[in-house]
């Protein structure tokens, strides 16, 4: 399955993202890197129909089914295909964690239905995947930011869409949880043939967990690299376009990055 974005622009009055084109593949975790304010969140929000945008976003399914343009779908149909994890959940009313996770079923529930036992069982198993099953009855609003992030990830698992967009999923998490969430995401994407696009701030994390890096600056895509395939010099050159002179090297099967002295 491929997601082809062509000529995509998004923004309120003036386009913040201009004419961006890229391809996302299934079983691939793609990182979107770039300095603050370059339009990463705008791009993702535009792809989710939250911001006025133009351009096409074609979904090409594997098994010879027809391709279609995601930009033409209604909000509900889009929610059945793309799930979006914001940087911080906005849930403001007290409710048990399980209920918050159950919200992930909404795009598929008919208007007059409520969630039932099977939904609750699926929600609980999603909580187990992220390690939050002991908190199922706790009030969502009393959790820490990192724990809330894990619960929202559980909600996304329950929503079970083919495409996942995540806005800085690791920023609120402590060091071990950061690794944990990225490993969980890798597993989800590989095992279930999904497409994942994450906005990340740390290029090291991106290099170590993602198969493809999209580099963005001032609303445009300035590069696209593949840590598994490209050489260290190619990676260094590409990342230097974003971060100034940096050197990427690989040791103990891990990528490291350090800034070069001027």
């Amino acid at each position: 399955m491929k997601l082809e974005v062509t000529g995509f622009s998004a923004g309120y009055k003036k386009p913040i993202v201009s004419n961006v084109s890229f391809t996302l593949r299934s079983k691939t975790l793609t990182a979107l890197l770039g300095p603050n304010g370059c339009g990463k969140t705008t791009l993702i929000k535009g792809l989710c129909h939250l911001i006025p945008s133009s351009g096409s976003c074609m979904l090409l399914p594997d098994n010879g089914h027809a391709t279609y343009n995601l930009m033409q779908l209604s909000s509900r149909k889009l929610a059945q295909r793309i799930s979006y994890i914001p940087q911080k959940s906005s849930l403001c009313a007290s409710m048990p964690v399980l209920d918050a996770v159950l919200m992930g079923f909404q795009p598929f529930l008919p208007l007059l239905s409520r969630t039932g036992k099977s939904h609750r069982a699926a929600a609980l198993s999603a909580l187990e995947t992220v390690g939050m099953q002991d908190f199922a009855a706790h009030d969502f609003c009393t959790l820490s930011e990192g724990q809330k992030q894990l619960c929202i990830l559980a909600r996304t698992l329950v929503q079970n869409t083919d495409i996942l967009f995540l806005d800085e999923p690791d920023s609120a998490l402590d060091y071990p949880n950061r690794n944990k969430i990225l490993n969980i995401l890798q597993n989800i994407v590989y095992d279930n043939n999904k497409v994942g696009l994450l906005i990340l701030h740390d290029p090291c994390t991106a290099l170590n967990h993602c198969n493809q890096l999209l580099l963005m600056k001032e609303g445009r895509l300035v590069g696209s690299v593949y840590p598994g395939q490209d050489s260290e010099s190619v990676l260094s050159k590409a990342l230097s376009r974003l971060y100034g002179p940096v050197q990427v090297f690989r040791q103990h099967n891990q990528f490291f990055l350090y800034p070069l002295q001027q």
Partner: peptide, 9 residues
């Protein structure tokens, strides 16, 4: 925004 991404009108 978050509600819309869950398909809520």
């Amino acid at each position: 925004d978050e509600a819309r991404t869950l398909g809520v009108p």
